[in-house]
């Protein structure tokens, strides 16, 4: 009986591992992350002032440098999101997305730990919502997804692969 249970557990573990490492899982992750980053970037680009104010509220950088950050970050999100979605420069764009996710995770985590009563500023749609543990969990999931894509993406349905074949 015990042997059967162990075999079942082992088999299930293998299935989970297979699912995580499967290139199609990475493809879905890549498309999902790309779409999320495009949406996040565009919503910030449309309202630069609002985003700059959201950055100020985090109180993690001197005021003088807030605008530089607020100008550049949305474009980093948009450009890496587009590249990720179409699979062009996939390696670099997933590294960028992972780095940004780590940055967001740190900012949200520190805000939550400090108990700041501020809005996230992550997307325009959640502008009115205060940062809670749920935001941290959401970013943690996205960060994990970015790591999955980083390690297991094999370039299915990507321009990179298409260009490689063409070249």
């Amino acid at each position: 009986m015990e042997g059967k249970w162990d075999a079942y557990k082992k088999g299930r573990g293998m299935m989970v591992k297979k699912f995580i490492a499967h290139p199609y899982t990475a493809l879905i992750g890549r498309i999902l992350l790309g779409a999320i980053f495009i949406y996040a970037g565009v919503s910030k680009i449309l309202e630069p002032d609002q985003f700059a104010q959201a950055v100020i509220n985090y109180r993690i950088m001197p005021l003088v440098s807030v605008n530089l950050f607020a100008i550049v970050l949305p474009w980093l999100e948009l450009v890496s999101g587009i590249f990720l979605l179409v699979g062009l420069f996939s390696g670099g764009s997933i590294v960028m997305v992972t780095v940004l996710m780590a940055l967001f995770l740190g900012a949200i985590g520190s805000t939550w730990l400090r108990g700041l009563d501020i809005t996230c500023g992550c997307f325009s749609a959640d502008g009115a919502h205060k940062i809670t543990l749920l935001y941290f969990i959401r970013d943690l999931l996205l960060f994990t997804l970015s790591l999955q894509v980083l390690f297991y993406d094999r370039g299915i349905l990507s321009l990179d692969r298409l260009l490689k074949r063409g070249g």
Partner: peptide, 8 residues
Amino acid sequence: SIIEFIGI
């Protein structure tokens, strides 16, 4: 990947 990252 690093070169692409810098380029992006």
